[in-house]
Design a protein around this nucleic acid. Structure first.
Lengths: 162, 162
DNA sequence: CTCATTGCAAATAATTTGCATGTAA
DNA sequence: TTACATGCAAATTATTTGCAATGAG
């Protein structure tokens, strides 16, 4: 069940946000940037630089590492992408889709990432932030545990060894 | 308001958890390990390896980088410490104090970290985990925003420039 | 005695940067 | 034509590892 992030998302909104940011900063639209951005939009969620680079190189083998890093930093700065760091040592990126905001359940055994949404938590967050006088910009909520499959696997292993 | 993590915490509980883990794995108790562990217990929360190393070296200048890394990894493995990665590129450690569990509000301007606790969110997390069949181990909940001081600063700056 | 541990330095890994060359605007 | 952008390789940063010497049990 590979899921792609654009299914229900208005990408033009993000394209415009990026153009606005680039215009304001006097940055230029290049073949590489367009390719990287559109590839990112089409990619599965939580993509790493490595994975994205290899998708990009499938279309244009000459694109360099640094350009992907620089472009993703650009997307992060203008609020089109979020950086995420789960337990493995790499940074992953996702579309900054505030509307359909989701958080993450991460299996500590197999690394599988499950997304969830809980409006009640979102509401509580706002009330906590205002209690401390914070102006909320974004958040990260990650829950670590053992997924059903790995629990079953562990049970089976225990049974076999006894 | 520097606050230290041992004020209300039963450190012996953690010392025992560590000994048990070390006994089970046949690991040895050395001067360096004891020094690093006790220094960590006394340190302010969210300490980085660098900071911890410098505290440790104030007591014994010969202790090496690698030993601190190795010892903190040990503490993490046996559930005495948690690793945390906020926005800056370094790993910070905190006591795995599940009882007085707190989450974090991080100021995106000045980096200040404020801790908060919200039992209602903890409860909701359990219900979400069980909905997906996950066995919950731990979680991270970080909210990013602008702290009251930085909001005031921004307002002042705006006023000055107009 | 034996094998884990240490400190050091070298090795990795992820990310960033300097620079000569290319190219939007 | 004028900066900004690119690709490459070298530099940086955080962390890990190999190894000879040390020390715990």
């Amino acid at each position: 069940m590979e899921h792609h992030k654009h299914e229900s998302t208005d990408l033009n909104h993000f394209r415009e946000r990026l153009s606005a940011h680039m215009a304001k900063k006097g940055l230029r639209s290049t073949d590489q940037r367009r390719l990287i951005v559109e590839t990112f939009f089409r990619a599965p969620n939580h993509i790493s630089i490595e994975e994205l680079l290899s998708d990009v190189r499938a279309q244009d083998p000459k694109v360099g590492y640094a350009t992907v890093y620089r472009t993703l930093k650009l997307l992060t700065e203008c609020g089109v992408a979020f950086e995420r760091r789960f337990g493995d040592g790499l940074t992953r990126y996702e579309l900054a889709d505030e509307e359909a905001h989701h958080d993450h359940l991460i299996c500590v055994e197999c690394g599988k990432i499950t997304e969830f949404e809980e409006p009640k938590i979102e509401a509580l967050q706002e009330s906590i932030a205002s209690k401390y006088g914070f102006l909320l910009r974004s958040h990260k909520h990650e829950m670590y545990g053992v997924c059903p499959e790995c629990q079953a696997k562990a049970t089976r292993a225990r049974r076999a060894s006894s």
